[in-house]
Design a protein around this nucleic acid. Structure first.
Ligand code: NAD
Ligand code: NAD
Lengths: 255, 255
DNA sequence: CCATCTTTGTGCACACGTTCACAAACACAT
DNA sequence: ATGTGTTTGTGAACGTGTGCACAAAGATGG
């Protein structure tokens, strides 16, 4: 399950404080989940606790680490050493969790050759050699969105079977390849959505009348919109033209 | 729903190519979801398409933007201008999606006063004033994990009601405050988990014998572990001591 | 050795999200 | 105006994940 890393983090914190055992209740509180869920997770995992006492912290740490494959360390390549790539390269939290940065890669000759976090930035041409030689199976993509799919293809071709994608792009990969994406804009948009909910429910304060009208009015409205060659009421959209870096909202009010 | 931003991104891409309408099938493919799911999302949202034709791209873009609260722009503060804070400050994708960086904040005097992405880094003391004056409701935490809860408390106290947390910490907040977390280590660990699954199922290759034995052997094993004062078989763990930056795996083999 | 108390492991019901499949609705050509 | 083709909107079945609640298991104290 996806909650194991959470448990592991809570457990290691306890381990550092030399706590010998935890009850499911305590651990669940520390990890921010339901205690029944935690117990079910552990039972499904096969790890056994002791009734009346709880779980042995050290044993669980080892069990979960093993289950997650953290008893071995995983070489990782980072492709696209810009703002985000630099930050990731400098991040110490990876090494401490069993992930080793095998190489930093970029296509820009101006970036290639510089160092980040003590590692040299190497050229994309070396990708295949590096992946093969060091048996890299995990790749991190921090290139601009336009290059992401192309980089992804090369990674997969070279033998990478797990990809962590930071570019706001939907990657298509063959079966057997796992992709996880981290999209900061989406996170913020979700927050904004809830934020708006809190601040009273009057989203547009105007055009909801037609849209919520049932029956034949709907068809009329649709026809109207199409006839106008676009959004009939887009004039209500803010004048913010936003010279989109990725050009996402740049066309709320089209030409 | 959490998929609206995805749809929005696909739709804006279409909008830039001046595509007037899309079928649910096409859009679903572009967003990487099931078409029925997409239709249900839209119907739940209240936006109407036209049967036999599809959805009006511009109209949908506006509708979703409005639903997400993207017709207004949201001031955001970033706290902790280290590696990650810098990267976020430099990221243009926020501004283009309706998010404006209201201020960069840090506690370190060595960092305060420098500039990042053209903005000055200001001291934490100014937090309350900034949040109040600019009516900031969204805060981003990129401090070390130890400071995260404390920073979170101050943000909430100042009036922030939505928090995006990059520190590997479970934040506790009062009701009415939303927290979303982005944890890169967890993402990598999940990938490693699946990666291990692919590479044959022999996680420990040794100690699974006892653990999977049913019946009274379980109790014996548990007793044994407790008596040994820790993991009876942790000796099988790799010798990698990992001088943990956050000290996460540093205690797989305890003292 | 027995009683009591704590905590696990899990059966079960429930709620939610997902997917299929199809009728109604609309466009378009004739 | 009518038929045909396309696509939406949604009812209903399905699978999954979640949480309650409780019996069994073991610890602990007498
Ligand atoms: N910076 C952030 O905080 C942030 C936040 C959210 C999302 N993102 C996303 O992460 C990605 C990277 O962001 P960034 O700010 O670091 O951008 P950036 O422009 O600073 O860095 C991109 C790097 O990728 C390299 N690159 C370009 N094409 C390449 C190719 N074909 N092969 C290899 N390398 C190539 C460039 O040379 C550059 O060094 C973008 O997709 C962005 O949308 C960034
Ligand atoms: N860098 C990454 O790629 C990365 C990846 C995953 C997670 N993270 C997490 O993000 C967080 C930041 O990472 P980083 O690499 O940028 O760390 P960093 O050490 O480079 O930056 C942290 C910044 O926070 C500031 N700070 C410390 N205490 C503060 C306080 N009480 N109030 C305000 N500011 C304070 C520091 O002065 C520093 O500038 C960490 O929790 C880390 O675990 C980072």
């Amino acid at each position: 399950m996806a909650r194991l890393p959470l448990y592991l983090r809570a457990l290691t914190a306890l381990s550092e404080r030399s706590v010998p055992t935890v009850s499911s209740e305590e651990l669940a509180a520390a990890a921010g989940v339901n205690s029944a869920k935690l117990r079910k997770d552990f039972s499904y995992l096969g790890s056994y606790g002791t009734r009346g006492v709880g779980y042995d912290v050290e044993y669980l740490v080892y069990q979960i680490s093993r289950e997650l494959g953290l008893t071995q360390d995983w070489p990782v390549v980072i492709v696209g050493i810009g703002n985000l790539g630099h930050a990731l390269a400098n991040y110490g939290g990876f090494a401490s969790r069993g992930f080793r940065v095998a190489a930093l890669l970029d296509a820009d000759p101006a970036v290639v050759g510089s160092t980040a976090a003590g590692l040299p930035v190497r050229h994309m041409d070396e990708l295949e050699d590096i992946v093969t030689a060091q048996q890299v199976s995990i790749g991190v993509i921090t290139t601009p969105p336009g290059a992401a799919q192309q980089v992804c293809d090369r990674l997969v071709e070279a033998g990478v079977t797990s990809i962590l994608n930071f570019a706001p792009t939907v990657l298509t990969v063959p079966d057997g390849v796992d992709v996880r994406k981290v999209d900061l804009s989406i996170e913020l948009q979700i927050l904004a959505f809830h934020e708006q909910r809190k601040a009273g429910d009057e989203p547009g304060a105007g055009d909801s009348v037609l849209d919520r009208a049932p029956g034949p009015v709907r068809a009329a409205a649709a026809k109207l919109r199409r006839a106008a060659g676009g959004t009939a009421k887009a004039e209500q959209a803010k004048g913010k033209t936003a010279q989109g870096t990725e050009g996402d909202l740049s066309a709320v009010m089209p030409a």
